[in-house]
């Protein structure tokens, strides 16, 4: 069986000017990323702001050319496909449903757009499919007549999901689809995405900064830090026995409703990782609680972690 998404040694560099006087700098946003997502499964990608999650998503969607490495979607190179074929194969759902929906069009027209862009569907067929997918994501026909500003955040995210699914793609890239939502609405959207995946046999790449959010949807989880995947494993194994200190910090930072426990000291310090200044040795060492001398000059290599995973840490 071919994997739905296959990524090998993927790398993305940007050249940025950091100031008037300073020279051009290289930002390595994604560094040597390799994984494959079997058809019908969900890979959760977790990491802090700026670690390269969206850059990875854009390369998989064919919106951004990798500096090196390959991306195969359903066994095909996206750059060899035209836009229409790409749209039938893979679709995105983004974090901010407001920014990604045209404010001056009705919801049902927004959802119809990918169909219309194909140029092969009749008016009646478009209407039929739009009505069907709106109902499937839990939006009434009356909602379809509204403008995005007249919907709640959760309803807008439902509309964005309807637009992504109206062409019946096999693969959906969800980039922080619930990060802008209330916890209650987040639960509704996570349940909807899980139902849709099961019923339609979809494959997801599901991006979040919150490890707890991916547990419900992901069969496998990859933890990203400064452009690299530092740990990857089956979801249960990763939650049961996190190997990388960063994965542990992410887990600890989830505030579960247990009164009396207080707020944990996750011990990451205030320095945000900067992809323009990747530390030598292990890139996590300035924030790592258990770092040893070796971590400061020698980068850890990829080690196998049972049952199906890998980890990059000298001490894991």
């Amino acid at each position: 069986m071919t994997a739905a998404i296959e990524v090998e040694n993927l790398r993305c560099e940007f050249r940025v000017h950091t100031g008037l006087m300073s020279a051009e700098k290289r930002v390595v946003a994604v560094d040597d990323v390799t994984f494959s997502v079997p058809a019908g499964s969900v890979l959760g990608v977790v990491g802090e702001s700026g670690c390269g999650k969206s850059t990875l998503a854009r390369m998989i969607l064919g919106l951004l050319k990798p500096t090196a490495g390959t991306v195969l979607v359903d066994g095909k190179r996206l750059f060899d496909l035209d836009r229409k074929a790409r749209a039938r194969l893979i679709q995105p759902v983004f974090q901010d449903p407001f920014a990604s929906l045209n404010p001056r069009r009705r919801i049902k027209d927004i959802v119809a757009l990918p169909l219309a862009a194909q140029g092969t569907f009749s008016r009646a067929e478009i209407e039929r499919r739009v009505a069907r997918i709106l109902e499937r994501v839990g939006l009434s026909a009356a909602m379809g007549e509204r403008m995005p500003a007249q919907l709640s955040g959760g309803q807008r995210q439902r509309a964005a999901i309807a637009r992504a699914l109206v062409l019946e793609p096999r693969i959906v890239i969800c980039d922080e689809p619930t990060s802008a939502l209330d916890v209650s609405v987040q639960a509704q959207i996570l349940n909807l995405l899980a139902d849709l995946r099961r019923d339609l046999g979809l494959t997801y790449l599901f991006i979040s900064h919150n490890l707890a959010v991916v547990e419900h949807v992901a069969s496998e989880v990859a933890v990203m830090y400064l452009g690299r995947i530092v740990e990857r494993n089956e979801t249960d194994a990763l939650f049961r026995e996190p190997g990388h200190p960063y994965t542990k910090a992410l887990l600890e930072s989830v505030l579960t409703p247990e009164p009396g426990k207080g707020v944990p000291d996750i011990g990451l310090g205030d320095a945000m990782p900067d992809p323009a200044n990747i530390p030598p040795g292990c890139r996590f060492n300035p924030r790592c609680r258990i770092a040893v001398e070796r971590c400061r000059h020698e980068a850890p290599t990829r080690m196998v972690r049972p049952p199906q995973g890998m980890v990059e840490c000298h001490l894991a």
């Binding site: 209650s184 609405v185 987040q186 639960a187 996570l190 349940n191 049961r240 579960t256 409703p257």
Partner: peptide, 25 residues
Amino acid sequence: RGLLSCVPVPGRVQRDRPLGSIPGV
């Protein structure tokens, strides 16, 4: 109670069951 059921708790999620949620807005 509805709000409480929405908070995802690592290790307590049952993958095949829906998360608790409050329908509507």
